[in-house]
Amino acid sequence: MMNAMKRFGHTPNYGWTALPFLLLLWMATASQYPAYILPQPWEVAAEGWRWVASGKLWTQLIASLLEEFAGFSAAVLVALVLGMAAGISAGFRSFITPLNGLFMAIPPIAWAPLTMIVFGLGYLSIIAVIFIAAVFPMALTIQNGVQAIRVGELRAARVLGASRWQLLVHVYFPASLPALTTALRVGFSQAWRALVAAEMIGASRGIGWMVSMGGQVGNASQVLLGISLIGMIAWLTESLIFRRIEQHYQSWRTT
């Protein structure tokens, strides 16, 4: 059967088995430890229900999502400008390339103490960490997309009398849309990781704060609840939004 499927170009999809496998592994491992060290999935679900019933879970989710939206949106706008400029201008590209390498080599969470000194504890310092984490990987991805534009497209537009502004609007930007959608995926994942890490250090609410406080009071169910929410939100956003956008524009680019 397997050979027949491969012969006709059909590859079996076992993705649906990943979550059940993880749950079975979790239950088997948790059975070897007391509940206060490694609780079972249903104990974590019960903890989640307590947070939902009290209304506290929505407070944490909304706080994290608002911080993510603010920092990520600012990073997208700046990365679009930097990436387009670096892709078009060789001079600006030579200037920003070392900065990209420098900032991408520094773990975003390393900026958290400095942002807390500058902005104080709270939203602004966390948003700053999110911005730093996302802007440079996105700018580099957009730059690579602009550089990949075919020379023939640019020559054709110039022959037709296109100005620099028209080249930017009608050639560079549309042709770099697939790279932009890829940049959004990369930037969101970086921003989400930075958000959680920053909340664990200097926040009074949010999913990262949930994980941190659960660890401090020895509540393993709360810790695993927070970790599960972090992974679930990232996976849903990646699968339902960014991956579909990227697939759409990748197929559009080939036409």
Score class of each variant (00 low, 15 high):
Asn3Gly: 14
Met5Gly: 04
Lys6Pro: 00
Arg7Met: 10
Arg7Tyr: 11
Phe8Lys: 13
His10Ala: 14
Thr11Met: 12
Thr11Ile: 15
Gly15Cys: 09
Thr17Ile: 15
Ala18Glu: 08
Leu19Met: 10
Pro20Asn: 07
Phe21Ser: 15
Leu22Ala: 11
Leu23Thr: 01
Trp26Arg: 01
Ala28Gly: 04
Ala30Val: 01
Ala30Leu: 09
Gln32Tyr: 13
Tyr33Thr: 05
Tyr33Pro: 01
Tyr36Phe: 14
Tyr36Arg: 13
Leu38Asn: 05
Pro41Lys: 11
Pro41His: 09
Glu43Ala: 13
Val44Ser: 12
Ala45Lys: 09
Ala46Glu: 12
Glu47Thr: 05
Glu47Asn: 11
Glu47His: 12
Gly48His: 10
Arg50Ala: 14
Gly55Met: 08
Lys56Leu: 11
Lys56Phe: 13
Trp58Lys: 03
Thr59Val: 13
Ala63Pro: 01
Ala63Lys: 03
Leu66Ser: 08
Glu67Ser: 05
Glu67Asp: 04
Phe69Leu: 14
Ala70Phe: 05
Ser73Asn: 00
Ala75Glu: 03
Ala75Gln: 02
Ala75Arg: 01
Ala79Pro: 00
Leu82Pro: 01
Gly83Arg: 04
Met84Ala: 10
Phe92His: 02
Ile96Asp: 03
Leu99Ala: 08
Asn100Ala: 07
Leu102Ile: 14
Ile106Ser: 04
Ile106Pro: 02
Ile109Thr: 04
Ala110Phe: 03
Ala110Asn: 02
Ala110Met: 11
Leu114Asn: 00
Met116Asn: 03
Val118Trp: 15
Phe119Val: 07
Gly120Glu: 10
Gly120Lys: 04
Gly122Thr: 03
Gly122Tyr: 07
Ser125Tyr: 05
Ser125Asn: 06
Val129Phe: 08
Ile130Ser: 02
Val135Gln: 06
Phe136His: 06
Pro137Gln: 08
Pro137Trp: 08
Ala139Ser: 11
Gln143Lys: 09
Asn144Met: 10
Gln147Trp: 00
Ala148Gln: 10
Arg150Ile: 00
Arg155Gln: 13
Ala156Glu: 00
Ala157Phe: 04
Val159Arg: 03
Val159Thr: 14
Gly161Tyr: 00
His170Cys: 03
Phe173Asn: 02
Phe173His: 06
Pro174Tyr: 03
Pro174Glu: 02
Leu180Asp: 02
Thr182Lys: 12
Leu184Ala: 12
Val186Ile: 15
Trp192His: 06
Ala194Asn: 06
Ala203Glu: 06
Gly208Asn: 08
Trp209Met: 12
Trp209His: 15
Val211Leu: 09
Val211Cys: 08
Val211Tyr: 03
Met213Thr: 08
Gly215Arg: 12
Asn219Pro: 00
Gln222Val: 03
Leu225Val: 07
Leu225Ile: 05
Ile230Tyr: 05
Gly231Asn: 02
Ile233Leu: 10
Ile233Ala: 01
Trp235Leu: 14
Leu236Asn: 01
Ser239Ala: 15
Leu240Arg: 09
Arg244Trp: 06
Ile245Trp: 15
Gln247Gly: 14
His248Trp: 12
Tyr249Gly: 01
Tyr249Ser: 00
Ser251Asp: 11
Ser251Pro: 01
